[in-house]
Write a protein that binds this DNA or RNA. Sequence first.
RNA 1: GUGGCUAUAGCUCAAUGGCAGAGCAUCGCACUGUGGAUGCGAGGGUUGUGGGUUCGACCCCCAUUAGCCACCCCA
Length: 422
Amino acid sequence: MKTMIQSVKGTREFYPRQMELRRWLYAKIEATATQFGYEEWDGPFLEKIDLYAAKSGEELVKEQSFVFPDRGGDLITLRPELTPSLARMVAQKQNELTYPLRWWSFGPFWRYERPQKGRSREFFQWNIDMIGVESAEADAELVGICVKFLKSVNVTPDQVKVLVNHRELIDVELGKLGVVSDLKKAVFKLIDRKDKLPFDKWEATALEAGLTQNQLEGVVTLLENKELWRESEYLSKVFSILEKMGVADYVEYDPKIIRGLDYYTGLVFEAWDVGGDGRSVLGGGHYSNLIGDVGGSPLGGVGFAMGDMMMTVILEKYGLLPQFGAFEKTVLVTVFDQSLMLSSVGFASELRSNGVKTICYPEISKLQKQFKYADRMGIELAVVIGPDEDVEGKVTLKDLKSGSQETIKREDAAAKIQQMLV
RNA sequence: GUGGCUAUAGCUCAAUGGCAGAGCAUCGCACUGUGGAUGCGAGGGUUGUGGGUUCGACCCCCAUUAGCCACCCCA
């Protein structure tokens, strides 16, 4: 123990129990994405830092990326997000792809941050994007997909809400307040932090950034206006589509949703744990210029990303994590003694040939120990082939849940077991 | 990057500055053809690491490392 080399800080270790959860989550994601006709894809785990330098936002690149020089001196980063890779891969084959393209991906990402609850340095993220369309319908579809996913894992609207806003709408409103373009980026940042800072502090920061007292009050009023979306034809359309999709109960307008990533240009949205203490569990939006920014022709897209850890925190909090029984449908063939070992091995093999998941106990030991093993593993059916059974060409099947057992002809056993395991 | 808390058996945690313990888990026995339950027993420790104070340190002090939590930021 003393000399055990520790795992790298913030990395994930998936013991079988956790791997089951990861696969379960993956299956839920896949089902939702596939239902909407999205195709699975992936990008490199390593990218040059320049890919992110342009558009992802300064903090993400400078503070939160794992960066190291390769042997040729290039600065390589473990991917902190997927969208720039997506933009490049689309740009590279821009004229060969059929639009709108609908792609999804689930894989590991790395960010150099202090680990805490729901946050580590290595995490899995679901990304799903539609590219090649500039429409409220496309934007609404992505919002709808995230709601459908939430539904598929039994999260309810009073547990998680999807908050929606539109950057242009806020941009226009800021214009009305006389906020000049140069200041808008800073104000966006401020809006994003409105609920994260105490008001006096927030106010001070705002004035420091260059807002006048009047403008400040205007912004505050703006951010309290939950009906602001009515002034946007675009958002009205989005909401009516979401209504038709049957997901409107999960969706709310919130003028404070801005998103930290710089490349969003239109619709932005985040899913939040309504139960207060949470961070956002998922976030996304519309990006009109990203493909062009990485060297392609202008082409817009919309998408979102969801991290596995926060989602798991939420599911755990609301008791929605499934109980896994990895070995419920597995048979343990016990080994009676050395002379009968081959008989057990042979029978186990027969069962596997019949499509039954079968574990044969791998050493000679007391039946007591073997049954205990089965019990611990959650195995519900055990087979005993002792001297009596062997002589008569029979096997004993024991149902570990009820404790009852019966001895039947060996050639009838496979069928009987299949029936018992249903 | 900032702040708070923690570190003792495999796990969860106790222990006025005076013999390092419990529960769970493991192994054995009761039980040589059968798990969960019960009883009895056993093994398991350089108290994160390095210094200091003290007759004496798990306990107090300093440093260090790691973990957790909250900020920042984000998934």
